[in-house]
Design a binder for these strands. Structure first.
Lengths: 165, 165
DNA sequence: TCTTGACTGTTATGATATAACATAAGATAG
DNA sequence: CTATCTTATGTTATATCATAACAGTCAAGA
């Protein structure tokens, strides 16, 4: 069994059925409360859907589930909820996959890097504060004022690299 | 005047009309020759189009220009040429913009980070070998086998930050 | 209670990307 | 030099991702 604790710097790609998902959801709710965010039913459910997912989900996959549960059936419903979560640090957008994933550590502000497995499509979130600092320095060097950054890596997750590929 | 030399770690976002563009094209051709790549007319012209551009270009913008010059008129024409260039290190894909940009230093293998200006949409390429090493270490720590990575930052370029915004 | 602003939902459309197949152009073995 | 194989180019058609614009809803405060 791999180490799935937050201290290991990453989170299991499959949150479902684990107490992890509930812990993360609780963190997210706490954070929303503190920040005065309105975690409405669609938004909350969207976050749960991301937490239940294996790997990242596309907006239309999220929409399917929402629609099946009586929420709106049209793309903006999913995009709005997802954008809300991303803007407020409760989820991340994975550009390489045109997909979204729940933030593994919504309790703390942090810079994340994403490790995307080519074989099983899992996405693990690694802390990237150091890399972000380095990037900030590089930006400073050319007079660029950095607002935010995205770091995405593609390769094989541990399980797939070990022959389960 | 800012320092546009390769040693400064970035390249002017506007290659047009400068000797830079021609120098880069020459580098790219040399590299293609060495590597036995077939830099066919569409591919070469696609690279030139990227080099002439201010900032990154979307595939459909490239396609427009190609079509206007008698090449194919349908999306796959542009996507194939662009993917060829990207796969062979002659161009980069900027995921955040759904766009492509010529590689500023096709002569050397290098890891790049992209600094994207929110105000003027320019894209400058910074060396990111250090960051990539750090990312590799973080990946190792969780047993992830890294194949390649993307680092994209959003903010304000020097010119825009200095009030020309 | 009335108004206001934020949220949810819809229709419609726009933007990005690829699958599948037909033709043409280069390389190579005979 | 030509038959064949491979790579590249071009097409039609369609899939996938994302947003603009507007209508209805609902809670909170004047």
């Amino acid at each position: 069994m791999t180490d799935h604790s937050p201290e290991a710097g990453f989170c299991c790609p499959d949150h479902s059925g684990t107490s992890q998902a509930q812990a993360i959801l609780a963190q997210a709710e706490a954070r929303a409360r503190e920040a005065g965010l309105r975690l409405t039913p669609v938004r909350r459910r969207t976050l749960e859907i991301l937490l239940e997912a294996h790997g990242a989900l596309g907006a239309y996959e999220v929409l399917e589930r929402l629609a099946a549960e009586g929420y709106g059936t049209q793309p903006p419903v999913a995009y709005r909820a997802l954008n809300f979560l991303v803007e407020n640090g409760l989820a991340h957008r994975i550009r390489r996959l045109n997909a979204f994933t729940a933030c593994a550590q919504p309790a703390h502000e942090h810079r994340a890097a994403f490790l995307i497995c080519e074989s099983c499509d899992s996405v693990t979130e690694a802390r990237a504060d150091g890399m972000t600092r380095a990037l900030g320095a590089a930006a400073d060097a050319v007079g660029f004022v950095l607002a935010r950054s995205t770091i995405e890596a593609v390769g094989l997750c541990r399980a797939c690299a070990q022959g389960r590929a």
